[in-house]
């Protein structure tokens, strides 16, 4: 669960004197939105986003002769003029959880990953994080989601896991929602099987309440009086 494993290591970068237009083209070509700006020795000095580039562009509502004029000016403008200096970075040994919390706090779309000397090692974006968590959820594999409502006390999860393991069914993942309703938790095992009816019966026999997500959904709908 380290950033190192999920980050993109083949980073497209620019240098401080790269033209703004060229940076824009580069992002378009590689379908990316963040370009780390590095020195020759690989040290990170800033980051430029597609929004930085677009904000630097003349408005399309300016009439055309002016645009040519503006473009000429832009041609002389370099990345250094528009980049964010000293951007928020993350180390390859940070965990994905760190990255997730930091992305929420800083409200950015990607972090450059740098080593102790400030050298760029990679970049990790919201998309990379989503991919990592999709993996963790196991939903790339065929299976079915169960919902089980349990009392908020020790040992409940063990019972559920044991009951399922006895049926020789593998887990894609198990999620726990701690705040489902007062005093209860909801457990969502994602099971790599097509056959969950016997498991449901077994869990009900053990005294667990199966969650019916549709009931919840229908309760939310506006009622026709």
């Amino acid at each position: 669960m380290f950033v190192d494993k999920s980050m993109n290591k083949k980073v497209i970068t620019v240098s401080r004197d790269t033209g703004v237009l060229e940076a824009g083209e580069k992002m378009k070509e590689h379908r990316i939105r963040h370009l780390p700006v590095v020195e020759e020795d690989g040290k990170l000095i800033g980051i430029v986003t597609d929004r930085d580039v677009r904000s630097a562009m003349p408005s399309i509502f300016v009439d055309s002769c002016d645009i040519e004029e503006e473009k000429k000016k832009l041609g002389q403008l370099s990345v250094e003029n528009i980049m964010t200096k000293d951007p928020v970075t993350i180390s390859p040994l940070h965990t994905l959880q760190d990255a997730l919390l930091l992305i929420q706090e800083k409200r950015v779309g990607a972090f450059p990953v740098v080593d102790e000397d400030g050298k760029l090692m990679g970049i990790i974006s919201v998309r990379d994080l989503l991919r990592a968590f999709t993996n963790v959820l196991g939903i790339g594999e065929p299976g079915m989601l169960l919902g089980v409502l349990v009392e908020d006390k020790v040992g409940q999860l063990e019972k559920i896991v044991n009951a399922i393991t006895e049926e020789k069914i593998s887990f894609g993942s198990v999620l726990v929602s701690r705040h489902w309703e007062e005093g209860k938790r909801a457990v969502f095992p994602y099971l790599l099987t097509n056959t969950v009816a016997p498991i449901k019966k077994k869990l009900e026999k053990l005294g667990f309440e199966m969650l019916n997500p549709m009931e919840w959904y229908l309760d939310q709908l506006p009622k026709n009086e």
Binding site: I139, E141, P142, G143, M144, L145, T193, N194, P213, M214
Partner: peptide, 8 residues
């Protein structure tokens, strides 16, 4: 697919 096999 969020409720049924195979999830696609």
């Amino acid at each position: 697919p969020s409720f049924a096999f195979p999830g696609t």
